[in-house]
Design a protein around this nucleic acid. Structure first.
Lengths: 108, 108
DNA sequence: ATAAATGTTTCTTATTTAGGAAACAATTTT
DNA sequence: AAAATTGTTTCCTAAATAAGAAACATTTAT
């Protein structure tokens, strides 16, 4: 098992390439199911990394600090755009992906 | 550029491994920025792959077909839980990730 | 070309998020 | 321990999503 000529990649190298290196800002990115409670957690975590109070974040977003509190603790549903505004205010990029699960579709 | 001994992977192979092979259900999963319009597109696409009408999807979700139409064409904001209910009705897994962008934080 | 099915738009009304503001609780700092 | 800051909860009101239902437009099938 020697390398020769063509460049090869270890799994770790590929992970670094695809997920981001440890210690780099991108490494904070990791995948979760899209759920209100996990979104709330992500907001709280990101806000703390930015060293912001709920009041400060609320001001940046343009919502009351009470709303930030409710969002972080998933005490309420929220408008989709409100969630997006929060992440924009935190200067965070939020992505999603959809995986259509296998289905035994009945062709009649 | 000859291979010898250690197994090497092409980019395509790695993509298959990480994203899923073409033709497999997982291949439908791909990353997008979380935005209402892209969510709307994803809903429409997934609904069509399930061969459902807007009325049928609405019934599954528990919302009016008018709402499905508005969502797919991003004519309205939506409640977060409504979006989630739609994907659940489509038997789709939806994930997200947050990337905290670099910031010139001022340590005073 | 007609009919049927599907998708879009538009009313009014109900429900819910969010604003505004303040009281209260909990945490942190001095 | 006291004060200050931060976070949570609770009023009432405003604004917006969604229901319900129907009309209308578009697409597809016969």
């Amino acid at each position: 098992m020697e390398k020769k000529g063509m460049k090869t990649y270890s799994l770790d190298e590929v992970t670094d390439k695809y997920i981001g290196k440890k210690g780099t800002p991108k490494r904070d990115e990791f995948e979760n199911e899209l759920r209100l409670d996990l979104i709330g957690n992500a907001i709280k975590q990101a806000r703390k990394e930015r060293n912001l109070t709920q009041a400060q974040l609320g001001e940046l977003v343009g919502v009351q600090k009470a709303q930030i509190s409710k969002l972080e603790n998933h005490l309420t549903d929220a408008r989709f755009e409100t969630i997006l505004k929060v992440f924009k205010a935190l200067n965070a990029k939020i992505n999603f992906n959809v995986e259509l699960l296998n289905q035994n579709l009945n062709l009649s």
